[in-house]
């Protein structure tokens, strides 16, 4: 009877059919990531314009190690320091709904700052921070920005951007690969829970210890900034 019912549902033998629904519940199909795409950035163009004419600069890249960024920066004779900021966050704070709550945990906060900044030997002449800061909540955000401030050369630039679309169900996590001095290949790699969207005023406050913050308009719901140390 049971076999017949299962066969009518799944069209094959009872044993296999019995296993089939269990499998489908245990391992739901992973959400497909969007395809990589290219975006143009005037802020990035200005970042590289500021560096032009100088070689052997020390550049910090918080998007993790990639051959593309390495090749791009090496062609100008720059030295690259790689750090996967978001990956360390996911390791320390998890990827679940308590991602932001965990950031308030003193021990985890210390661990994150230790893992991220203890091995960074500045000063850097430029930093590609990308969107990594939008995943941090105060007071950890302030600590991280404070460390960046300490690591940067005076007058050096930080390139960063923040999502401004509060309709999104979750914040996309991407890898960023430099294609030209103003175009970036965006490679989706997952998502993290939505947090409070940073306003222009909030971003200014975040970088209040820096010399200046310049905002750039984009068509992709992003607040792009160039921050001068």
């Amino acid at each position: 009877m049971l076999k017949d019912t299962l066969r009518s549902w799944f069209g094959h033998s009872g044993e296999a059919a019995a296993a089939a629904p269990a499998l489908s519940i245990a391992a739901p199909a992973p959400k497909a990531l969007p395809a990589p795409y290219l975006r143009t950035s005037h802020a990035l163009e200005q970042f590289f314009q500021d560096l032009s004419g100088r070689d052997s600069l020390r550049i910090l890249d918080l998007s993790g190690a990639s051959q593309a960024n390495l090749n791009f920066l090496m062609q100008y004779g720059h030295q690259l320091y790689c750090e996967d900021f978001v990956s360390t966050m996911e390791t320390v704070f998890g990827k679940g709904p308590d991602f932001y709550e965990n950031q308030a945990n003193e021990a985890r906060m210390e661990e994150f700052l230790e893992q991220t900044f203890a091995s960074l030997h500045g000063p850097f002449d430029g930093a590609l921070v990308w969107d990594t800061l939008q995943f941090l909540q105060p007071p950890l955000l302030d600590h991280a920005v404070g460390h960046l401030n300490r690591l940067m050369e005076p007058q050096s630039l930080i390139y960063s951007f923040f999502c401004s679309n509060d309709k999104l169900p979750a914040l996309p996590v991407n890898s960023y690969r430099l294609e030209t001095n103003k175009s970036i290949r965006v490679i989706p790699r997952g998502e993290l829970p939505m947090s409070q969207i940073q306003t222009n005023r909030g971003i200014e406050r975040t970088f209040s210890d820096f010399n200046s913050v310049k905002f750039f308009l984009t068509r992709e719901h992003l607040r792009e900034v160039l921050v001068r140390r």
Partner: peptide
């Protein structure tokens, strides 16, 4: 790889985890 690299040529595959300085 957690550490600094000093080399003439470098290849980093996607999915590799590297934290450190690269000096070519």
């Amino acid at each position: 790889l957690m550490g600094d690299i000093r080399t003439a040529r470098i290849v980093i595959e996607d999915g590799a985890v590297f934290k450190g300085n690269i000096d070519i």
